[in-house]
Simulated assay, not measured.
Amino acid sequence: MLLDTASMYFRAFFGVPEILAPDGSTPVNAVRGLMDFISRLVEEYRPSELVCCWDNDWRPQWRVDLVPTYKTHRVEAEVEQAPDVEVVPDPLQVQVPIIRDVLAAFGISVVGADGYEADDVIGTLATGAGRPVDVVTGDRDLFQLVDDDAEVRVLYIARGISKHERVTNDWVRAKYAVDAAQYADFATMRGDASDGLPGVKGVGEKTAATLLERYGDMPGILAAAEDPASGMGPGPRAKIKAAADYLAVAPQVVAVARDLDLPRTGHDIPRSPADPDRVRALAAQWGLESPTERLLKALAG
């Protein structure tokens, strides 16, 4: 089970009412929410391995170099000394180190890669795993990893943990009229305002799906746009050709990395905490006794 950790603690922060630690000032709703999310998922799916995938770099420069608008809306332009700081609410920012401490004390694997996002860590660990993989995320970009043959699916939490959906290739095709393997190209053309990806002007989901159904993938679409005998209509042809510069680079931005040098072992689910004394101390310091008990019980199986 691969967790898109930031996706989960953001959801916990905004979905769980504010709760203050015993010090009376430090919010811990994201910490408590994430712990409970993990408990519920582990209880339901009983994974043998569990990895909290981490954003070592939430906005890699190499992606910005290719598409300068990438995630620009998440950047505080007004902050002169740190123009590339992600906009994270202060009450959440103070909880991230606590989350790291809790995960370490329990012995739950945390894996990141310098210069890459959690999506890339997930893509690498999900590819070639040789066993069933569940990817937990609220980010539809990761639908590109769904592979029924390799038993890779997404547990999509956009509507909440309790209402999560199990995303298979049939699910993707029913919703978007493309296969999961085509989803990255589909998203490239459609665009995504939340990631600062403009997409191809005038090409929405229906046209993108139609083009992929007819021409297979982005190289096929680009080739068809240049071939008068391809059967591509003048409208789509003009739109694809007008977006040639964007389409030359955007697929690299949208596609998650699958070949990072990451440890593929050592992620067994901890049946007992790595540091029981630290777990107890953190629970007392931050008022996490109840979620700690629930997580201990879930991990023990």
Rank of each mutant, 00 (worst) to 15 (best):
residue 2 L to R: 10
residue 5 T to E: 12
residue 6 A to R: 09
residue 8 M to N: 01
residue 13 F to Y: 15
residue 15 G to M: 11
residue 25 S to I: 04
residue 28 V to S: 06
residue 34 L to P: 02
residue 36 D to W: 04
residue 46 R to N: 12
residue 49 E to H: 14
residue 60 P to S: 10
residue 62 W to V: 08
residue 64 V to H: 03
residue 66 L to R: 11
residue 66 L to Y: 09
residue 72 T to V: 10
residue 76 E to G: 04
residue 83 P to K: 14
residue 88 V to C: 10
residue 90 D to L: 03
residue 90 D to Y: 01
residue 95 Q to T: 08
residue 97 P to M: 08
residue 102 V to Q: 06
residue 103 L to A: 04
residue 106 F to R: 05
residue 108 I to L: 01
residue 110 V to K: 02
residue 116 Y to R: 02
residue 117 E to A: 01
residue 122 I to S: 06
residue 126 A to C: 07
residue 130 G to T: 15
residue 130 G to K: 13
residue 130 G to H: 13
residue 133 V to W: 06
residue 133 V to D: 10
residue 142 L to R: 05
residue 148 D to C: 07
residue 156 Y to K: 09
residue 158 A to Y: 12
residue 159 R to V: 07
residue 162 S to V: 02
residue 163 K to G: 13
residue 163 K to T: 14
residue 165 E to F: 06
residue 166 R to L: 02
residue 167 V to T: 05
residue 172 V to T: 09
residue 175 K to Y: 06
residue 178 V to N: 01
residue 187 A to W: 07
residue 188 T to V: 06
residue 193 A to R: 12
residue 199 G to Y: 05
residue 204 G to A: 12
residue 208 A to I: 11
residue 209 A to L: 09
residue 210 T to G: 12
residue 212 L to I: 03
residue 223 A to S: 11
residue 228 P to V: 08
residue 229 A to D: 13
residue 230 S to G: 04
residue 234 P to C: 00
residue 236 P to I: 12
residue 238 A to Y: 07
residue 238 A to E: 15
residue 239 K to E: 03
residue 241 K to V: 13
residue 245 D to K: 15
residue 247 L to Y: 08
residue 249 V to D: 02
residue 252 Q to L: 15
residue 264 R to E: 05
residue 269 I to E: 00
residue 269 I to P: 03
residue 284 A to R: 14
residue 286 W to I: 03
residue 290 S to L: 10
residue 290 S to F: 03
